[in-house]
Amino acid sequence: MAYSEKVIDHAENPRNVGTLDKEDPSVGTGLVGAPACGDVMRLQIKVSDDGVIQDAKFKTFGCGSAIASSSLATEWIKGKKVEEAEAIKNVDIVNELNLPPVKIHCSVLAEDAIKSAIADYRAKQAAKKA
């Protein structure tokens, strides 16, 4: 299958690969997987006190499109407010990377990963206040 240039760029030079300390209360960790293909993706955010995503890291074991989708997702959410990051839709990723229909689930996985990281961050913040 032919990958678009942007997918190849992100897959060969993925941005923000790595890990953040998942015990840090300002870090949210999202871990998602696609049972239909066996890909796993971890996306982490570090949020400042005023609700801005200062840093984002990811680790994806999967195809080029899954790596590109998560790489792009981390690029996009850095510097955004949590609410703005939450509004990112998988179709935005599909359009940016020109993903073919069979690879749309990779972008869904990336959107889920963002949401799951945000949910984890919020749960930690709520626990801190309690």
Partner: peptide, 16 residues
């Protein structure tokens, strides 16, 4: 894709 349940967090953690 759309018909199967999501993998459990514990399972995903182990796979990761």
């Amino acid at each position: 894709e759309t018909n199967e349940p999501k993998a459990s967090p514990a399972f995903l953690m182990e796979v990761m």
